[in-house]
Amino acid sequence: MAGPIIRTEHLSRFFGTVKAVDDLSLEVPAGIVFGFLGPNGAGKTTTIHLLLGLLEPTQGQASVLGFDTRTQADEIRTRIGALLEFAGLYERMTAEDNLDFYGRISHMPAAERRARIKELLTHLDLWDRRKDPVGNWSRGMKQKLAVARALLHHPPLIFLDEPTAGFDPVAAATLRNDLASLVAREGVTVFLTTHNLTEAEKLCAQVGVIRQGKLLTVGNPDELRLRTGGPQAEIVGHGFNDQTLALLRERPEVANVALHNSHLTIELRGESKIGPLVSLIVRSGGEVEEVRRGKASLEDVFLTLMEEENT
């Protein structure tokens, strides 16, 4: 479709005095993975509920796939896939029956349903377990099945609400890889909420950051890094002290310095040389083991935005 696949204009939802979503204006182009980042309680899930037409906005409006969320919610729900806060699987039913149920809901013909279920379960290495009740499965397997369910009826847009929340790093990485390969293969647009910044960094072409219902910023990760932080140098070593930090802060090319354990993170102004700064550190009694030049991570961007909001 031409134009953004999701558009919100001054979208707000209040629960009494609590502003769960506050004046959210956003456009999500088709064909990308859009990350909606924010801490717990930021309003991410409420935004998804509003976009699915499950909640009425208090103010403003939104359209998904060109349909108004207030008046055409049924049209939206017919065309999208969703993996919400919980996997939402019927644990007493088999994996195959879970998918079959949602295929029937989408009015897929029986033969098409069977073929599609086989295709997705095979791709996710779940085909051999299709007759098992889902309740006996691991959490990672259930979540993969829920992803398959969201994609079953070939939706052009899927909503994923914190798909790896509560997973151990290995399970999260596996699911992320499966997700990335499926999304690329199916060519769907993804609206992904998360507070996992590694996940956003790996999957998302564009991110929006929300806090206390307000959209703080939106853009692609590189743009955000430039907007909120310039080039960086990370120096690993020992003997860094307050004097080291004070000396570094006096340098004109240094925008900011932070010390976390034995890691010294120096934000630079422009593409400055690191050598003189390393010499300074050594002269002040520090022992340098490793020097890395890099850009601010999405986590740095996120934390900076949160700090700015606090002040």
Partner: peptide, 12 residues
Amino acid sequence: RHTLETLLASRM
């Protein structure tokens, strides 16, 4: 069993 939200998000 947390299946209601997903069912409500469907076209049913």
